[in-house]
Design a binder for these strands. Structure first.
Length: 281
DNA sequence: AGTGTCGCCTGAATGC
DNA sequence: TGCATTCAGGCGACAC
């Protein structure tokens, strides 16, 4: 499940492999993903020089010479594969978008569940585009801090776990890292969001940053579908404290698992939350 | 505006 | 073994 660290890993690989190169050909293998592809998508890509590749939240942004930005979102199961000259792969069943550069680098976008997105928007209209218009600050930037988080949480009645997933509040945090950040901060995921302020908000903001930075350094978390662009697994799953660890001991656990049941799994907003009821209160 | 629920989608895991 | 069901969740649409 690609969240910010997984997307960041892919973006770095794409920037390295594609910047300065030209899109020689681009091909769509179906009508659309979540939504139909724009009719002029291929036309606005072909022949363009890729200036650089960056990230905003969970979106991949390939900046083109024309001023257009090619936007990719990996959704749930999306994967970007980059193949060097001479190592191109034939498209498989779920390879919906394929492009080849002038230097013969092939990029394949695979997304079995098709929750992903691919569209082009001009750089001038990026911030006003519906995908980005109401988006909150980048969690790893200076614009995200304890006070900023506390202000965003103010008056919110819903629980902190579900609230952390709201992209208008802070951009790029998904289910895995919301669970991990709350464990790091020692906060019960059921806590009313609006009650987190002051030192607690400082701790939580810091934990969001710490968890995401560690995951980026590890190349992301390979849970089911995710791979790095070169096909390698991310390996942050080895460092996960609570996510998908129902019934197991959390890091530094001193309690008797047979009695306490270890890490608990609950459902919040239709999604799994994993936490330690003893360390998170 | 905040909040909660649903649907999209397929492969892996599970159940009988 | 094989078929059916359940589950995973980012995000937009929708209702209240």
């Amino acid at each position: 499940m690609p969240e910010l660290p997984e997307v960041e890993t892919v973006v770095r690989a794409m920037d390295e492999a594609l910047s300065g190169d030209f899109i020689a050909s681009a091909a769509l293998h179906r009508e659309g993903l979540r939504t139909p592809f724009a009719k002029d998508l291929v036309r606005r890509l072909e022949g363009q020089r890729i200036e650089h590749v960056t990230r905003r939240a969970k979106y991949i942004l390939a900046h083109l010479k024309s001023g257009d930005v090619f936007v990719l979102h990996l959704g749930m199961s999306g994967r970007v594969m980059i193949h060097a000259k001479g190592q191109h792969k034939n498209p498989e069943k779920h390879d919906h978008f394929v492009m080849v550069t002038k230097k013969n680098v092939q990029l394949v976008f695979r997304d079995p569940r098709r929750f992903g997105m691919a569209f082009v928007v001009h750089a001038d209209e990026l911030d006003s585009h519906p995908a980005f218009k109401k988006m909150g600050p980048e969690p790893l930037g200076n614009e995200f801090s304890g006070p900023v988080l506390a202000d965003a949480l103010k008056g919110r009645k819903s629980n902190i776990k579900v609230t952390l997933l709201d992209q208008r509040l802070v951009a790029g945090v998904g289910n895995i890292y919301a669970c991990e950040a709350l464990f790091c901060a020692g906060i019960d995921p059921e806590t009313e969001a609006g009650k987190i302020k002051g030192a607690k908000a400082e701790t939580l903001a810091a934990c969001v940053k710490i968890v995401l930075k560690k995951a980026v350094a590890a190349g992301g978390t390979s849970f089911r579908d995710y791979r790095q662009a070169n096909g390698e697994l991310g390996y942050f799953q080895q460092q996960l404290a609570v996510y998908d660890k129902e019934g197991k001991a959390c890091p530094g656990c001193t309690c008797d698992i047979a009695k306490t049941g270890g890490i608990l799994r609950i459902t919040q907003g239709g999604r799994s939350t994993f936490y330690c009821p003893r360390k998170q209160r």
